[in-house]
């Protein structure tokens, strides 16, 4: 058991972790629900979290390695109250069904738009190809990403 300190959604936290625990296990013990382990292989994106501003698969990331890091999860928006532009676009386009993969898609879309504010459809598909939606809400998600890009541009 090791004590780690990191910043979680803007707040300093400490946690006790075992070396074999991954980030999803840790976050769930801290009461967060947004990152979920599904495929367990980093392929589906349900466990997406941001570590030092970069998206990673929480199911393939040792919890102990969060020591000293800045960690952001989907819950960060909830704390701030309002849905952000990406979430608003997902809501507007009905870009989810069962919702299990949705936090991962939202986080990845934020990353995409931060790097590339006006992605082409091909760029959207490539960037999000590592996130799976078994309900296959893909057409709606593509439209939501495009809408979010337009709202961001209009607001900039």
């Amino acid at each position: 058991m090791k004590t780690i300190r990191f910043e979680l959604n803007g707040e300093p936290v400490t946690a006790q972790v075992e070396p074999h625990h991954n980030v999803v296990e840790l976050l769930q013990t801290m009461g967060l629900r947004g990152a979920r382990e599904s495929c367990g292989q980093g392929l589906c994106g349900c466990c997406t979290v941001l570590v030092d501003g970069l998206a990673v698969s929480g199911c393939l990331y040792f919890a102990a390695q969060l020591d000293g890091a800045r960690v952001d999860t989907i819950e960060r928006t909830e704390r701030e109250g309002e849905l952000d532009v990406v979430q608003q676009a997902f809501a507007e386009c009905g870009a989810f069904q069962c919702g299990f993969c949705t936090p991962g898609f939202v986080l990845m879309t934020r990353q995409l738009l931060a790097h590339n504010p006006a992605p082409s459809e091909d760029e959207i598909r490539h960037y999000l190809s590592g996130n799976l939606c078994r309900c296959a809400t893909y057409p709606e998600i593509i439209r939501a990403v495009q809408l979010a890009a337009r709202i961001r541009k209009a607001g900039a």
Partner: peptide, 21 residues
């Protein structure tokens, strides 16, 4: 009417309840 899904906020913020949690 294309009513927005009732669970929109819960699912987009990751707070929706599943047995998983």
């Amino acid at each position: 009417r294309s009513v927005p899904r009732k669970e929109t906020h819960a699912k987009l913020t990751g707070t929706a309840a599943y047995v998983h949690h």
